[in-house]
Design a protein around this nucleic acid. Structure first.
Length: 570
RNA sequence: CGGGGCGUAGCGCAGCCUGGCAGCGCGCCUGCUUUGGGAGCAGGAUGUCGCAGGUUCAAAUCCUGCCGCCCCGACCA
């Protein structure tokens, strides 16, 4: 491509509304432009990157045995009503009516459509397993789009869906996708980590997120410093402490104390001269309209997702004052387990506590020296708390570290959530009707590209990894008005293109400095500078964008060197 | 949806408080000079000051309503 012909608007100044580096650089380097909130156009340079990444995804999907399909964007409400998600998906699902007043939506994901397709065509175990994937635009009406293409409303996504006859088959399908994802992100030169994750509204039983490590990432994870345990913070488990037999002889007498206007843990500790480790927090939640009390040690925080998953409820929020009054007979700030009028869940952190402090379910009162069994009983201790700095690995008890990342891929074992609701059945060897076992596997296309920039940039601009670079080489004649330079550049351009190399020839009548700046900004991995001094000796300069390394090579050696360098970096 | 901010030339912004000629830098166009890290000089074009209404002799500026965008939170994966 000749740069002078290319629609590649670069911008010197940083647009004021771009917060993260990838967003700023994508705008500056002419990769994307915004149309409206959360909706972006990809310009030629950006679209080349997208297509290169998609190509890698296609190759690895094919290698893993998946077949590409192309599915509708507009979907009828009936399908979503069948799966139950018409009511459950919420406002992110953009709904509208067509001219016949039929309810429709824009597909935010395609489980319903694919399940419908497969149930209509697949009848026998002989036709399974099957893995179909699509690379398409999806729409989620995000409450607040942000970070450019990273969290937007309209976005490109690869989704694969697997159908198996049984659990073992589903495990194999899942593993294949898991491996494929590792290959895909490795090929793109990304530093990433698969972590155990919560399944959220997609549903299902088991899941991994692929997080590209970046401080700007929206996801927090913990990982073990010794074994390979890594989990999203929402999912991260806490090891179950060993339960020691409490000796009733150590129990001090229960004592109610007046604590006027003392509500928070800090206030209680200051007032009673105890530490947060001596106090039990009693939090009243509203779970689908029913009150539930969560007991947790004063220095810990509740992980609401764990509570939600344990209860299997749809909605969970801290209770309003009227509900608190109803179950504790006291205002907010004095809840405790003794005599409370609702179900109680206790976190692991309480297991070996004795003589602790908690609310008295009475205004301006707390109780001291509370003990299990004697004062109240807990059926079972559950892991309900948010992992904190200092927590150890649930698998091997070694130290864990915190990190942030960008979710670029997510694999789910769906089980029968959709196949059951939508009756995706097949006949097994014995002529028995069985439900298919499903999995789904997504990759955010634009988001991965943005994540790659978050990991590959410097003060001058983007540094594309070779595998997804829009062009592998940029040829920069220092002055196109000098015919010898222009000619030599054009000749080299033709020669490299003949080798199948993707080359951008900067034939603009611009000053050298401008061209260098643009070449750095748009992040082409290899720059060949053609200047008068070197050319007089039949030499050119090669500069590697990432390392800044410079080489002077004879014209005859250039081709081999470039071919080699590209091969090494792919 | 709650809180905050912004909307003035293609981009980045000043002007608004205290009403009185529509500005600056970059970019763009023309010419000359310059040509290996965002050139210099000279000349030039570009505005529904987000939209609508109101106050006023006079509104970018004050008032009301609406729209759009950004940030924080809630939400979502």
């Amino acid at each position: 491509m000749h740069y002078s012909m290319m629609f590649l608007p670069t911008v010197r100044e940083t647009p004021s509304d771009a917060e993260v580096i990838s967003h700023q650089l994508m705008l500056r380097a002419g990769v994307i432009r915004k149309l409206t909130s959360g909706v972006y156009s990809y310009l030629p340079l950006g679209y080349r990157v997208i297509r290169k990444f998609e190509q890698i995804v296609r190759e690895e999907m094919t290698r893993a045995g998946a077949q590409e399909v192309f599915l509708p964007t507009v979907q009828p409400a009936e399908l979503w009503q069948e799966s139950g998600r018409w009511t459950h998906y919420g406002k992110e699902l953009l709904r509208f009516r067509d001219r016949h007043d039929r309810e429709c939506c824009l597909g935010p994901t395609h489980e319903e459509v694919i399940t419908d397709l497969v149930r209509n065509e697949i009848k026998s175990y002989r036709q399974l397993p099957l893995n179909l994937y699509q690379i398409q635009t999806k729409f989620r009406d995000e409450i607040r789009p942000r970070f450019g293409v990273m969290r937007c409303r309209e976005f490109g996504m690869k989704d694969a869906y697997s159908f198996d006859t049984d659990e073992e088959g589903a495990e194999i399908s899942y593993r294949k996708m898991f491996d494929a994802y590792n290959r895909i992100f490795t090929r793109c030169g990304l530093k990433f980590r698969p972590v155990e994750a919560d399944t959220g509204s997609i549903g299902g039983s088991f899941s991994h997120e692929f997080l590209v490590t970046a401080d700007s990432g929206e996801d927090a994870m913990v990982y073990c410093t010794r074994c390979d345990y890594a989990a999203n913070l929402e999912k991260a488990e806490v090891p179950r402490p060993e339960q020691k037999q409490a000796n009733a002889k150590d129990f001090l007498p229960l004592e109610e104390v007046c604590t006027p206007d003392v509500r928070t843990i800090e206030e209680v500790c200051a007032f009673l001269k105890v530490t947060p480790q001596d106090v039990i927090k009693t939090l009243i939640f509203n779970a689908d309209g029913k009150p539930i009390a969560i007991l947790i040690r004063g220095d810990k925080e509740v992980n609401e997702i764990k509570v939600k998953n344990f209860l299997g409820c749809d909605e969970l929020e801290l209770a309003m004052d009227d509900m608190i009054l109803e179950v504790t007979k006291s205002p907010r700030g004095f809840a405790g387990a003794i005599g409370i009028k609702c179900r109680i869940l206790a976190d692991y952190s309480l297991m070996n506590m004795k003589n602790f402090v908690m609310g008295a379910n009475k205004e301006d009162h707390h109780v001291k020296n509370v003990n299990f069994r004697r004062d109240f009983t807990v059926k079972d201790f559950v892991d309900l708390r948010a992992v904190q700095e200092g927590d150890v690995c649930p698998r091997c008890l070694s130290a864990m570290k915190f990190a942030r990342g960008i979710e670029v891929g997510h694999v789910f074992k769906l089980g029968t959530k959709y196949s059951k609701a939508m009756k995706a059945h097949y006949l097994d060897k014995n002529g028995q009707e069985k439900i298919m076992i499903m999995g789904c596997y997504g990759i955010g296309i634009g988001r991965t590209v943005a994540a790659s920039i978050e990991q590959n940039y410097d003060g001058k601009g983007i540094i594309w990894p070779m595998a997804i670079a829009p062009y592998q080489v940029i040829i920069t004649p220092v002055n196109v008005r000098e015919e010898s330079l222009a000619k030599a550049s054009e000749a080299l351009y033709q020669k490299l293109q003949g080798q199948g190399i993707e080359v951008l020839l900067d034939d603009r009548d611009e000053r050298a400095g401008v061209k260098f700046m643009d070449a750095d900004l748009i992040g082409i991995p290899i720059r060949i500078t053609i200047g008068p001094k070197n050319l007089a000796e039949k030499k050119v300069e090669i500069k590697i964008r990432r390392s800044g390394e410079v080489k002077i090579l004879g014209l005859a050696e250039v081709e081999a060197f470039i071919v080699n360098t590209i091969k090494e970096e792919m």
